[in-house]
Every structure is written in C-alpha cells, then in structure tokens.
Amino acid sequence: MRLRHSVRGILMSPDQHVLLCRHRLDGTGGVWTAPGGGVEDGETLVDTLRRELLEEAGFVLAGRPPHVWHRTSGRAVPGYDGTVHDYFLVRTQRFEPRATVDVGAEGIDAFRWWSPAEMAGYRGPDLFGPRDLAGRLAALIAGGVPARPIEF
C-alpha cells in the first residue's frame, strides 16, 4: 500500500485560536485545515513542518514542537492509496500569514484564525479537516499536550 505522508502545524495563539487555511474544492466550497504538507524524500517530520509553515504562512518555526496527533486515512490522493498525517502543536502569537510560495497553485485561497467554538458553530458550506477538528482542539486545550501522540 502506497501512503502519502504529511505533517500539519496547529498554530495556536494565547487566546486558543488556531490558524487554518482553506483549500478550495471544485464548486462545492472548501476545506479548512491546519497548514502543512507532504514529506519529501530525506526530510524528517520536523524539517517538513518547518518548510511547510514557512512556505504556506511565512512562519519561522524555532525549536521542536510536541507531536500531538497521528491520523491515517484511506482517502486516496492521486498516486496514493491513502494518507498519513502527523500533527504538531505550535504555540505562537497571532500574525498575518504571508506565504513565500504561490499557495493558490496548491488550492489555498484563504487563511483565518478560528476558535474551537467558532468551528463548532459554523454552518457554512465549507468543511473542516478532519471533520471533528473543533472537538479534537477543545480536548487538546482541556487536556494539554498528551504524553504520547493520540491516534485517530
């Protein structure tokens, strides 16, 4: 089975908002996800996270953030049988994202800081990735960083 491995950065502000980027879908709205992307040959997960956060949001990652979630999905992307996502919690002040690459070419058309309550109450056409992101973030905030990553 060929899996696409990616990392995502949960950029969380002191007021517990997280930065999400919107990936547009063909005529059906979009999906809000944490910034991140695919692991390239020879990269560690943290190296990939550092590169992706800089490219997509203009964020310079210092240090090694804690790994909080591991997710495997059977949902295929072109050329793969499924996906593996590793999530890292990055505490930061709010900032205005400024991509260093053309994120429009990757289907990203917006950035927004969201609270878990705003996500839970959202009734628009867009989705969140993963679908239960609001609940997972609320649990992370309430329980703190787990001793080992949570699988889902």
Rank of each mutant, 00 (worst) to 15 (best):
M1R: 09
R2A: 14
L3I: 07
R4A: 10
S6N: 14
S6T: 14
R8M: 13
I10G: 02
L11Y: 11
L11E: 05
M12C: 10
M12Y: 05
S13F: 07
S13G: 08
S13N: 11
P14Q: 12
D15L: 05
H17P: 01
L20Q: 02
L20D: 01
R22Y: 06
L25P: 00
D26T: 05
G27K: 10
T28M: 12
G30P: 06
V31I: 14
W32S: 04
W32F: 10
W32R: 08
W32Q: 03
T33F: 12
A34K: 05
P35T: 09
P35I: 06
P35Q: 12
G38A: 08
G38R: 07
G38M: 03
E40I: 04
D41Q: 03
T44Q: 05
L45D: 13
V46Q: 01
D47R: 04
T48S: 11
L49A: 00
R50C: 01
E52H: 08
A57E: 03
A57P: 02
A57D: 01
A57T: 15
A57H: 03
G58V: 03
G58K: 06
V60I: 08
L61Q: 06
A62K: 12
A62V: 09
G63W: 10
G63E: 15
G63P: 13
G63S: 12
R64A: 13
R64K: 09
R64D: 14
P65M: 12
P65E: 14
H67S: 15
H70S: 11
H70Q: 13
H70I: 04
R71C: 15
R71M: 13
T72F: 14
S73A: 11
S73C: 10
G74P: 05
R75A: 11
A76P: 00
V77L: 12
V77I: 09
P78N: 08
Y87D: 01
V90G: 02
V90F: 02
V90T: 04
R91M: 00
Q93P: 00
R94K: 14
R94M: 13
F95R: 10
F95N: 06
E96L: 12
P97S: 06
R98D: 07
R98P: 02
R98W: 03
A99E: 05
T100W: 05
V101I: 14
D102S: 08
A105W: 07
E106P: 00
D109I: 06
D109T: 11
R112P: 01
W113F: 09
S115T: 13
S115G: 04
S115C: 04
E118M: 00
E118F: 01
M119H: 00
A120I: 01
A120N: 00
G121V: 00
G121A: 12
R123L: 12
R123V: 05
P125V: 15
D126N: 10
L127F: 14
P130Y: 08
R131N: 08
D132G: 00
L137T: 02
A138T: 13
A142I: 00
A142F: 02
G144M: 10
G144V: 11
P146E: 05
A147K: 15
I150Q: 11
I150R: 15
E151V: 08
F152H: 11
F152S: 09
